[in-house]
Design a protein around this nucleic acid. Structure first.
Length: 274
DNA sequence: AACCTCACCTGCGGGC
DNA sequence: TGCCCGCAGGTGAGGT
């Protein structure tokens, strides 16, 4: 569910409620969401520590603690991190962190694909993660190097978190639509101009997603339980059978890398080599 | 090495 | 009404 804009929105909305607060108690309601061999080690890692900062990296949330450790959170498909009353138990609640402020940080997750753990060294834990697409980390040169000589479909490459961090199925479809590139295009066949257009489109769709507080299809909410608004602005994702916003042609859907991809057969012409 | 498929979970909506 | 199927923003293990 949550891609970079959604995770960024969660980070921004939990930050003011968490920074400076101490985690007074932890209740593990479902150990499946703890990605550690020992749940007790997870509890020990956070109990009594103060939150120094809340950082987003790709689709990961990092809560830096004053015990030199980091609480790592990945929301999976349906994970929700909300701050609220200690008694206001959300649906599918999996964890409750009781805060010194009197509030609680809840982790809820319908499908339980999300994971939390304690990392001694957050940057080592995220060692394989590619560059951030916003800011200066990801350059056209980096992208060109990543696509060079690869026959892998460009959408599959965009979803690869070691190539760039934070894109998911929604924003990959949106970026390819904006750039006018078919999702199956072999990565290595893109010209430098194609890659430049794609990089600009990736940044555009992510920036717009953040500006609109994320895309809510069914589950995503921010720390205060508010839905995003970006779903009203999608041009490609989930629009199979509906008219292209640019040319009116019926949008199509195909299966790629185990996910569905929506695209306009006219604005995003199929590559010759398929 | 590069790439693909499936498994992991739960719920929902469509077709019969 | 109810069953069965496919589908859903995420990885990550294991196969070719």
């Amino acid at each position: 569910m949550p891609e970079l804009p959604e995770v960024e929105t969660v980070a921004r909305t939990i930050r003011p409620r968490l920074v400076g607060a101490t985690i007074a108690d932890v209740e593990v309601l479902d150990p499946l969401v703890i990605r550690m061999p020992d749940v007790a080690a997870f509890v020990d890692g956070v109990l009594g520590s103060r939150v120094l900062s809340v950082v987003r990296r790709g689709k990961h949330l990092i809560l830096e603690l004053d015990n030199r450790r980091s609480l790592m959170v990945h929301l999976g498909m349906t994970g929700r991190l909300t701050v609220g009353g200690a008694d206001a138990i959300p649906d599918h609640a999996r964890l409750r962190f009781s805060l010194s402020t009197g509030e609680a940080l809840w982790y809820a997750d319908l499908r339980k694909f999300g994971r939390l753990c304690i990392a001694e060294d957050a940057s080592r834990y995220l060692g394989d993660l590619g560059p951030e697409p916003l800011g200066n980390e990801l350059t056209l040169g980096t992208l060109l190097k990543a696509i060079k000589g690869r026959r892998r479909p460009i959408k599959s490459l965009l979803l690869d978190q070691t190539v760039l961090a934070g894109l998911g199925n929604i924003y990959a479809d949106e970026a390819l639509f904006e750039a006018g590139i078919h999702p199956c295009t072999p990565s290595g066949s893109l010209t430098e101009a194609d890659a430049a257009r794609l990089l600009a489109a990736v940044r555009n769709v992510l920036t717009q997603g953040i500006a609109n507080h994320g895309t809510t299809i069914s589950d995503y909410v921010d720390a205060q339980g508010r839905a995003g608004q970006n779903q009203h602005l999608l041009c490609a994702y989930g629009r199979a059978g509906r008219p292209c916003v640019r040319c009116g042609t019926a949008m199509e859907r195909l299966r790629l890398a185990g996910r569905s991809a929506c695209y306009c057969p006219v604005c995003q012409p199929a590559p010759e080599t398929i």
